[in-house]
């Protein structure tokens, strides 16, 4: 049994401690935000926040995050009350297939928390390890810029 703090709630889950966090989030907690893309830490789709830091949930075990605060895409906001980043991704239509959106948003959340007014180069470099195959990058940059403006005001 492992107890995890996810999106502000404690969850006791009956899993082997070496289970990758990604599968606990998806299969035990029923969350859709973090995605399986490679399981190798190379694509960024599984990104979650751990104590405010963007981490790859496919590369972390459940045991390694005990006592840490995990936030997933669902923890940022909802359909009814989207986070400014989620709102900006909708407004800028920053998704084609949308599979990369989770990682892009979670990594951008970390960026904006540390750098509230990032330049385009800073956004590109923050997202450098996050792959998008559909070619939505420029919409994503605009969405992050819009969210930055929104979060400042």
């Amino acid at each position: 049994m492992v107890t995890l703090d996810v999106n502000g709630k404690k969850h006791a889950v009956d899993v082997s401690p070496d289970t990758p966090l990604l599968y606990v989030l998806r299969n035990d907690l029923g969350l859709n935000g973090p995605k399986f893309g490679c399981g190798l830490g190379q694509c960024g789709t599984c990104t979650v926040l751990m104590d405010g830091r963007a981490v790859l949930s496919c590369m972390m075990t459940a045991a390694a995050v005990v006592g840490r605060k995990i936030v997933t895409l669902e923890g940022l906001g909802s359909l009814e009350k989207p986070h400014p980043l989620q709102q900006a991704f909708i407004a800028e239509q920053a998704a084609q297939c949308g599979y990369c959106a989770n990682g892009m948003i979670m990594k951008s959340k970390e960026l904006l928390d540390r750098t509230p007014d990032p330049s385009e180069v800073q956004i590109r470099s923050a997202l450098a390890a996050h792959l998008c195959r559909c070619g939505t990058h420029n919409n994503i940059i605009r969405a992050v810029q819009q969210a930055a403006r929104e979060m400042k005001s």
Binding site: N27, G30, L31, N32, G33, K35, F36, T72, L73, E74, G77, S78, L79, P82, Q86, F89, I90, Q93, A94, A95, G98, Y99, A101, N102, I105
Partner: peptide, 27 residues
């Protein structure tokens, strides 16, 4: 017109076959 599918995709809605969960499902 804004895409119908994007709001769910950026808020963690079930959007993909990977998100399909059926009773008794195994892997």
């Amino acid at each position: 017109v804004p895409r119908r599918d994007i709001p769910a995709k950026v808020t963690g809605g079930a959007s993909y076959v990977q998100d399909l969960r059926l009773p008794g499902m195994v892997f």
